[in-house]
Design a protein around this nucleic acid. Structure first.
Length: 570
RNA sequence: CGGGCCGUGGCGCAGCUUGGUAGCGCGCUUGACUGGGGGUCAAGAGGUCGCGGGUUCAAAUCCCGCCGGCCCGACCA
């Protein structure tokens, strides 16, 4: 490619509506343009990078025996009804009607369709299988953000494993785990594998691959001592034990005018610090009122409740619903003597006494509350959000809470979809058995953005050779000078012959413009062909990553560069 | 969905308070000089001021409605 003929619209200024580094740089360097909220057009450079990401993923999937498919994006309602997800996916699924009035949807994931195809498997002897595809997913995100990091239309590599039993699934899961590790390594960034919640996918275990980054939106808790790591939605920790002074013989009501929050109550006469308060949260779970109790200074992780109530509808109760249930407004709610609602308490409240909590009478609280004596807790669960520096649940070393980008997610699904779609095979005893499935996803464009988040500097992107749109740029300093241009062209052609992805910057621009663009676009190697060097028979090779520069005899340049590039391709 | 900010040539912005000629920088075109980190000079092209309505002699500017984008929150794979 000649730069003079290429569509690489670089910008001098950051786009005004971009915040994330990858968003700014991918726009500025001419890799993509926005079409609407959460929808981007990939330009030639962006397309080249995504193709390379795709090829790396493809190689690693093939390596574990994956077979590539190409499934439709347009799905009939019926197949989603069978899994119950037509309505479960809610507004996030693009649903509409065709000209005959039939309900259809744009695929946001493909468990249903692959499970439907798996119905074509007959015998356990045909298992295991790993099926995958690269396909556009449509998800009507409530809030797209950060350029390619959270979008409404994107390409996903989704794969699905099919096994006769859970041991088989474990094996397929492990194979994917290793494949994903290799993929992210080849993409040029380090990930942390964390325990995660399975969300709407169902199943009993999932692992997310996270890249630490300020641009991320997921929080994880990680232990540097033993390697424990979990999404904050799932993480647990150990905390300092607390000692309660002996309380009262019975809870005692006291007035707390104007007190609405934990903080208010800390400052009130007869109040107590947050760790001595019981916070009462009222939730609606499947139309029933449930009370969630936490220590006053702890935060609820709603997902932990969701994970315990398979499939149920869960939301905070409104102030009116709380009043109906308990007789007071939020701010004075409590669980003491409440018998007709289900009460779930956080583990951190076990055995606590002499606590303060709402009295279920507006503007009154209770003190001297002993949780075992005064509250009918029906279930003890871990509900609280882990905080930075709390103890690791495995080894007690301090946990670090960090912001991350989710670059991959793998799930053990089990038989949810195979049962819904009737995907069974005959086992060794001639009996029909549902296939045990796993599903595994990587978003291509998000991973491209993740590479940028992990590899950039003040001048622009610093692509690893593996995914660089071009591996080498031959910068012709003075294309109007015949010798200069000819040496550049010959070098360019020699590199092409070596199989290197090379672009010839033959534009009639000032050298500085070409240098700035090469840095911004992030091409790993730049070779400068100019009159100064040619007077000594040399060209200058500069490595983008660390700025290392050296002069090379013109005749040796192509082989030297090819060797360097090939050495870094992995 | 709630809160905040913002829509003016391709990009980044000013003008709006106090209504009256659309302006700046970059980029783009042509020419000249230049040529190793976004060069200089000269001459140009390019804008329904997001959309609709209203007020007014007159609206980028004031009022109403809508649409779109970004950020925070809620939600989410």
């Amino acid at each position: 490619m000649r730069w003079s003929k290429a569509f690489i619209p670089t910008l001098r200024d950051d786009p005004a509506d971009a915040e994330a580094v990858s968003h700014k740089l991918l726009i500025r360097a001419g890799f993509m343009r926005q079409l609407m909220a959460g929808v981007y057009s990939l330009l030639p450079l962006g397309t080249r990078v995504v193709r390379k990401v795709e090829q790396i993923v493809r190689e690693e999937m093939n390596r574990i025996g994956g077979q590539e498919f190409q499934l439709p994006s347009l799905h009939p309602r019926e197949i989603w009804e069978r899994s119950g997800r037509w309505s479960a996916m809610g507004a996030e699924m693009f649903q509409f009607q065709d000209r005959r009035g039939a309900d259809v949807a744009l695929g946001m994931t493909h468990e249903e369709i692959f499970a439907h195809l798996a119905g074509g498997l007959r015998s356990y002897k045909e298992l295991p299988q790993i099926w995958y595809q690269f396909q556009t997913k449509f998800r009507d995100e409530a809030r797209p953000k950060s350029g390619l990091l959270r979008v409404r239309e994107f390409t996903m590599k989704d794969s699905y494993s099919m096994d006769i039993d859970w041991d088989g699934l474990d094996h397929a899961f492990d194979e994917h785990f290793d494949a994903y590790r290799r993929i992210f390594n080849r993409l040029g960034f380090e990930t942390v594998a964390v325990e995660a919640s399975s969300g709407s996918m169902g199943g009993n275990q999932s692992v997310e691959f996270m890249l630490r980054s300020d641009a991320g939106e997921d929080w994880i808790a990680a232990c540097s001592a033993c390697g424990y790591a979990a999404n904050i939605e799932k993480a647990t920790s150990t905390i300092e034990p607390v000692h309660d002074e002996p309380g009262l013989d019975a809870p005692e009501r006291f007035p707390t005018p104007g007190v609405r929050t934990i903080e208010d109550l800390e400052k009130t006469d007869g109040g107590a610090p947050g760790w001595r308060q019981i916070k009462t949260l009222v939730y609606r779970v499947d139309e029933k009122i449930v009370l969630l109790l936490l220590r006053g200074d702890h935060t609820l992780v709603e997902q932990k409740i969701v994970d315990h109530v398979e499939g149920g509808e869960i939301r905070p109760a409104t102030a009116d619903e709380a009043k109906d249930a308990l007789g007071a407004q939020p701010g004075s709610l409590g669980a003491v003597a409440v018998e007709d609602h289900f009460i779930i308490a956080d583990e951190a409240l076990r055995g606590r006494s002499n606590m303060v909590t709402g009295a279920n009478v507006d503007e009154f609280h209770l003190r001297g509350v002993d949780i075992d004596r005064d509250i009918s807790v029906k279930a003890w669960l871990d509900l609280r959000e882990v905080r930075d520096a709390e103890g690791c649940p495995m080894c007690a070393a301090p946990l670090a809470v960090q912001k991350t980008i989710e670059v991959g997610h793998i799930f053990k699904l089990g038989t949810k979809y195979s049962e819904a779609m009737g995907a069974t095979v005959l086992d060794g005893n001639g009996k029909a058995a549902p296939i045990v499935m796993g599903s595994y996803g990587i978003g291509l464009e998000r991973n491209m953005a993740a590479v940028v988040e992990a590899n950039h500097d003040a001048a622009g992107i610093v692509w690893p050779v593996n995914v660089a749109p071009y591996e080498v740029v031959v910068t012709v300093v003075k294309p109007k000078q015949v010798e200069c241009l000819e040496v550049g062209v010959r070098l360019y052609e020699a590199l092409l012959a070596e199989g290197i992805d090379v672009i010839l910057d033959d534009r009639d621009e000032r050298p500085g413009v070409k240098f700035k663009d090469a840095d911004l676009v992030g091409i790993p190697y730049r070779v400068v062909v100019g009159p100064k060097g040619l007077a000594d028979g040399v060209v200058e090779i500069k490595r983008r990553r660390d700025g290392e520069t050296r002069d090379i005899q013109v005749g040796h340049a192509a082989s030297t560069l090819a060797e360097a590039v090939l050495d870094e391709r992995r």
